[in-house]
Amino acid sequence: MSDNEAEFREFVGAQMDSLRGLAYLTCGDWQVAEDAVLSALARLYVKWGRVENHDSYARTAVVRAAIDETRRPWWRREQSHSHAMPDMAAPDVIPHADDRMHLREALLQVPVKHRAVLVLRFLEGLSVPQTAAALRCPEGTVKAYTSRGLETLRRILGVDISLDERTEARHEAV
């Protein structure tokens, strides 16, 4: 096994879960998310020796692949959300399951690019410039998408939400 491959193996082992989560929150489907991570990391494998910042490359590639998956024509998508099941009010026996479901449904209604910005900023803790670099768009666009995405969530959830930004400085020093 080459050094590159050993490094790649170690990288995937360490980052797979977080990349999977990043893709899932961007596209809203676990199966599609894992497909996106697989294709993004396969590209990284080929370019491993030429890429300087593996974390940043992987994050960008995964988010872009997840966005691409949501743009597939409907007949090529795997259906996984039922519209037939009735919503019935009932006691919630699993702690916070309702909150999570509401937030997940609300997040899925946010336009995909706005959603990607929210996920990069509030899950991955990227700054505005880092998010702009990851999505290859101007910083002003990131700010606008953040504002509009949060506004959409507030409107859908009907509450003044505050997503946790404590991690925002996590990548500042990178």
């Binding site: 797979m16 989560g21 909150d99 899950l123």
Partner: peptide, 15 residues
């Protein structure tokens, strides 16, 4: 509520 809360019930990884 944090976005990471939505990842708590992640299915087992397939890859």
């Amino acid at each position: 509520m944090k976005l990471s809360d939505l990842l708590e019930d992640a299915p087992p990884p397939r890859f």
